[in-house]
Structure formats: structure tokens, C-alpha cells
């Protein structure tokens, strides 16, 4: 398994380099201009100077190599320096990947966005899983019962109704129709600067997370519960379940120890594969509730033609996807004794 992991990790290097180059090329070929969204009062001559100051005067291969150096050498060095408080070489003149719109290091922006994204999107993922697993298990066990039918209906609804609709409906219900003095009122705008220090600030945090988390959790749960149900059904009809019953095991043990454990193998893999999406944020939901996480950062970068930001963010997502694919494979290997990597 160790050798396998190392081999897979080594293989990701050329993969990721290729991905980064393709992203760079695509972004460069896309007709876009970082000065396109500036007010008309800024003259074309000034725009041209801005473009040159952003480094757009250089040919593409130079810009790509520069980005490679910034991302793979300068950024890690900076990270090491910050962690250990040391200085390596000429830190002053070492240029990190800079966003064009904010003129600040992209990685710092990403780090700044991480908490709200992980809190809201991550929590919605966790809540989604917590909702989905019991629903999937019961639906499969009580196959075709009214519970299963309702579960199927709800997950179809959750899956097919877009989050911008559920989000807006929730805002109208909980922020507009309910008066803001009521304890059931929920804020429609997420305050990213809010800090949890005591019980009452914790309640505020829970309230402001409630709507975006529920909107996303519903969406996630819809998908996952179907998956859980299918996997459970698959295993429920297996002979080893009959064996367990023949052994005289309690139904609870049959279900939770035998069936569930085996059914969870593919589900856990799917959950692991979905984790990069958490880091990718939820563009639409973040926009609706103004959570301003990584998804919103990306969309603003795209709209403003902030190419270093989009390039770096997209590449980080690519790294995460490749990484979690590997993790999913390894988890599969750990959970399923039939799989051996060597």
C-alpha cells in the first residue's frame, strides 16, 4: 500500500503539470481583459499601461514559467518562512502569485476564504451526510414503504430544484416574512467577520449558517441518500445477509454490522470524492447568502478576468481532486479487505 501510494503520488506530478498548463492556455485563449470592467472614463492609453503593469506584455511561455516559479517555489518558501519564522534567501524580492484585482497574494486570499467555506459548505456536507445515511438505510430496509416513497420524493425534489430557488424561498420565508425581532428570524446576509466568543455569539453564528447550510445540505443529502439506498439494497439481497440471519443474529446486528458496513464502502468513497467540492465552495449558494467563500472568490476572478487568481484557484481545485481521488482509492483499500494495492 505504501509503495502504491508513493507510485500514485509520483504519477500525479506530470498530471498536475499538464493540467496547470492546459488551464493556463485556456485562460489565455479566452477573450477577456482585466481592464474590461473598469469605468469608461479610464482612457484606452491608461488601460494599455495597466495591462503592461500586470505583465501582459510578456509572451505566454514566459508568463507560464513565471507562474510555475511563483506557485511551486515562491509560495512554498513563503509558507515555510511563515511557519517557522525564518527567512530563506531574498524574501523581499520574491514575488508570490498576485491577484490582479486585489494586488494581494492569491494564496492569502484563499486562506482568508477558507474558514467560511469550510464552515458553511463543509458543515452542509456533514449535515447532508447525517441526513442522507439514515434516510438511505431506512429507505432500503423498508423498501417501497411509505417512508421510502416519501424519501424518494424528497430527494428528487432536493436534487432537481436549484439552490438559487430554495435559497431565495428560504430568505423570503425566514428573513422577509418573519419579523426581525422574532427569534425565528434568520439573517439573509452572512457576516464573515463574526467571531464566536461566547454562547450568544455562537447562537448568532448558528443562525447565520442555518439557511445556507440547509439549502446545500438538502442538495447533498438528496444525492447521497439515493446512493446509500442503492448500495444497501445491493447488499441486503446478498447471501451473507442470509447467513447472518441463519446464525440467529439480531436484526439490528444484521443491518448495522453486516449490511451497513459493506454498503458504506462505496458510499464512503463517494463522500471522499466529494470533498474537493467542499473546498470549491458553492458558487450559487455563496452568492445568494453573501457567504463570500472560495466559490465567490472564483466567480469574481472570472468576471474580472483576474487570471492569476482563476489560474491558481482552479489549479488548487485540480490538486484537491487528484489528491482525493487517491484518498478515495486508499480508503477503499482499507475498508474492503478484498482490495490490495501493491
Amino acid at each position: 500500500m505504501f509503495n502504491y501510494t508513493i507510485r500514485r503520488l509520483l504519477f500525479t506530478v506530470p498530471t498536475l503539470l499538464l493540467i496547470s498548463f492546459i488551464i493556463f492556455l485556456l485562460l489565455d485563449l479566452a477573450p477577456n481583459d482585466p481592464t474590461g470592467n473598469l469605468p469608461m472614463t479610464i482612457t484606452p492609453e491608461v488601460r494599455e499601461k495597466i495591462r503592461i503593469s500586470l505583465g501582459l506584455g510578456e509572451p505566454i511561455h514566459i508568463r507560464y514559467l513565471l507562474w510555475l516559479q511563483q506557485f511551486f517555489v515562491n509560495e512554498p518558501l513563503n509558507l515555510i518562512e511563515e511557519w517557522w519564522g525564518i527567512q530563506i534567501g531574498d524574501a523581499e524580492n520574491r514575488l508570490r502569485v498576485q491577484s490582479w484585482a486585489t494586488r494581494s497574494p492569491v494564496v492569502d486570499l484563499v486562506v482568508e476564504r477558507m474558514p467560511q467555506t469550510l464552515w458553511v459548505v463543509g458543515m452542509s456536507y456533514v449535515v447532508g451526510i447525517l441526513i442522507a445515511l439514515p434516510i438511505g438505510i431506512i429507505s432500503a430496509y423498508k423498501h417501497y414503504s411509505w417512508f421510502d416513497q416519501i424519501g424518494t420524493f424528497v430527494s428528487m425534489v432536493g436534487f432537481s430544484i436549484p439552490t438559487f430557488l430554495t435559497g431565495t424561498v428560504l430568505i423570503v420565508l425566514f428573513s422577509v416574512l418573519i419579523d426581525s425581532s422574532s427569534p425565528f428570524w434568520l439573517p439573509s446576509i452572512y457576516d464573515t467577520t463574526h467571531r464566536v466568543t461566547d454562547w450568544s455569539s455562537f447562537v448568532v453564528q448558528v443562525k447565520q449558517m442555518a439557511m445556507p447550510v440547509m439549502v446545500l445540505a438538502l442538495f447533498n443529502a438528496a444525492q447521497l441518500s439515493r446512493f446509500m439506498r442503492a448500495s444497501m439494497l445491493d447488499n441486503l439481497s446478498q447471501d451473507y445477509v442470509r447467513t447472518a440471519r441463519a446464525k440467529g443474529m439480531k436484526e439490528r446486528v444484521v443491518l448495522l454490522v453486516h449490511v451497513l458496513r459493506n454498503s458504506l464502502i462505496p458510499v464512503v468513497t463517494v463522500i471522499a470524492l466529494g470533498v474537493p467540492q467542499v473546498f470549491g465552495g458553492a458558487i450559487i449558494t455563496e452568492q445568494i447568502f453573501k457567504v463570500n467563500g472560495l466559490g465567490q472568490l472564483l466567480i469574481i476572478g472570472v468576471q474580472g478576468a483576474d487570471i492569476p487568481l482563476v489560474q491558481t484557484l482552479t489549479f488548487i481545485f485540480a490538486v484537491l481532486i487528484v489528491l482525493f481521488n487517491l484518498i478515495a482509492d486508499l480508503i477503499y483499500g482499507i475498508l474492503d479487505p478484498r482490495i490490495r494495492y501493491d
Partner: peptide
């Protein structure tokens, strides 16, 4: 798209 239309590409 505005970024293209008003952009100087």
C-alpha cells in the same frame, strides 16, 4: 459579454 465587449483584447 461585457468583459469582452469593453475589454481591449
Amino acid at each position: 459579454d461585457a468583459a469582452v465587449f469593453f475589454g481591449g483584447d
